[in-house]
Every structure is written in C-alpha cells, then in structure tokens.
C-alpha cells in the first residue's frame, strides 16, 4: 500500500483486524484515528459501527463506540448527538448499509443537517455476506446475485450518493475521495479531517465517501483492485468536494 504507517495513532487500538489482506478498511480506520488524535478529540468522540465488514470496528478504535443495526447508523448518531451535542459523533458505513437498507436514514440525517460525520465506504459489493450486488455495483459487474452482470435496465444505475445528497438544500459538507493511490490516500486524510473540523465548529452535516475495493469478492489481487477503482469507478464516481458551507467546492 502507498503510505507508510510510521506510527500508530493513539485512537487506533493495537489489535490485529479481521479484514482480508489488502482491504482498505484498515487504512480508513487509521486515517480517522489520526484525525481524532490531531484534533485532540479522542475523549469526546463516539463512533458508530454499521453492519457489514466493519461491524467489529468498535474493537479497532480507542474511543467509545456503538454497534448499530443494519443501515440505521445515521439515526443512532442523530439520537446520540441530539442528546449530547458536545460529543463528536461519527458513523462508519458500507454501501449496502448506507445506500440500500439505510437510504432513508442517511437522506434525512443529511436533510436535517445533523452535526455528525459520516464516512461512507463504497466498495461496490456486500463484502461481509459474500459479494452480493450493492446499490453501487458498476454496470455489467458480476456479483453473486448478478450472475449475468448488473443490468441497468432492470435494476437501475449505481447510486451516486454524494450527488444525491448534494441536491438537498440544507447546508452540508459532502466530498468523495479514493483509496486507489498514495496521493489519493493523503488527500482522503485532508478531507476527512476537514469534515471533523466542521463538526467540531458545529457547522453542518459532514459526509465523506471513500472509493474502496474488495479484492476478495472482486476476485482480484489488491494491486489489480486499486487499478480497477481508478479505471472503472473514478470515471463514474468523480472525486472532489461536492458541497461545502465555505463555498470551496472542487471537482476533478
């Protein structure tokens, strides 16, 4: 992987994870933990783990955590934040969790402008249950429940969550980053930090989509998977800041 992990952030637990070799979940965890450290918020941060491969994320962070039911992390986050506005609440969700079963929860949390941070891992499949189709599966992509390839005429096009949420009028910070190269990983850290800063300033709802991979279920090596993100996903899911309360949107 691109970036050398020179030092384990103190918000990251010193335990082996259950993730498959080459899975970006671990990198994103480290980035989040680094942001928590840098911003000095470890003692007031509460994470919310989803149902998906990152269901055990509560074991991997040194901060308080919830485990939510499938898709409902933004609702759990809403409850926690409304009850304790001084806490920094982040939800960590996969694409099945957030963009399928939890579509209502994410749209409404965003629309209410909940002062929370949602990190959204888009790996185009349901990793944990064995590689079934996700709402973000690419056109023609073969999964265990699209044995003939995703047919957009029958089940529609992959959902671009950033674009969808950006259409809501409520102020928000909405960005998409990627895990396909060292450069993008460095950028992801900047953007995720920005999201947390806006939450700390009690500014708006903050959302970062991370283009990720699942080499196990894609049947690729981690290196092939990184290339696949760049070649197949990035053209469809453009990177950049889609919406920002500071008016500093930037798309590439």
């Amino acid at each position: 992987m691109g970036k050398v992990v020179f030092k384990r952030p103190k918000s990251l637990a010193d335990v082996p994870t259950h993730y498959c070799p080459g899975c970006p979940h671990g990198i994103v965890h480290r980035i989040i933990a680094q942001c928590i450290d840098d911003l000095g918020i470890q003692q007031r941060t509460v994470g919310i783990a989803p149902v998906g491969c990152s269901v055990l994320a509560y074991n991997y962070f040194n901060c308080d955590f919830f485990e939510a039911s499938h898709g409902r992390a933004p609702a759990v986050a809403t409850g926690a934040k409304r009850a304790r506005p001084d806490l920094i609440i982040f939800a960590y969700q996969g694409d099945g969790d957030l963009a399928s079963i939890g579509t209502a929860e994410i749209v409404h949390a965003c629309n209410r402008g909940e002062k929370i941070t949602v990190i959204f891992i888009n790996n185009t499949v349901y990793g944990m249950t064995g590689g079934q189709m996700a709402p973000t599966t690419m056109p023609g992509q073969v999964t265990t429940t699209t044995p003939y390839g995703r047919d957009v005429n029958s089940i529609g096009w992959p959902i671009r969550v950033c674009e969808l949420l950006s259409s809501l009028k409520t102020e928000a910070f909405i960005a998409r980053v990627s895990m396909h190269s060292a450069r993008e990983i460095v950028n992801a850290e900047k953007v995720i930090k920005k999201a947390f800063e806006l939450q700390i300033a009690n500014r708006c709802f903050t959302f970062v989509e991370v283009l990720s991979s699942c080499s196990t279920n894609w049947g690729m090596t981690p290196v092939e998977a990184q290339k696949w993100i760049e070649k197949e996903m990035v053209p469809y899911y453009p990177l950049g800041v889609f919406k920002s309360p500071n008016g500093d949107e930037s798309k590439n």
């Binding site: 099945g96 349901y126 944990m128 249950t129 064995g130 079934q132 265990t144 429940t145 044995p147």
Partner: peptide
C-alpha cells in the same frame, strides 16, 4: 442478502 441463507437469493 443475509447469512445463513444467502445461497437462496444467489
């Protein structure tokens, strides 16, 4: 999808 019945939808 949900384990342990995903073989059915698949």
């Amino acid at each position: 999808p949900i384990t342990p019945q995903s073989e059915i939808p698949e």
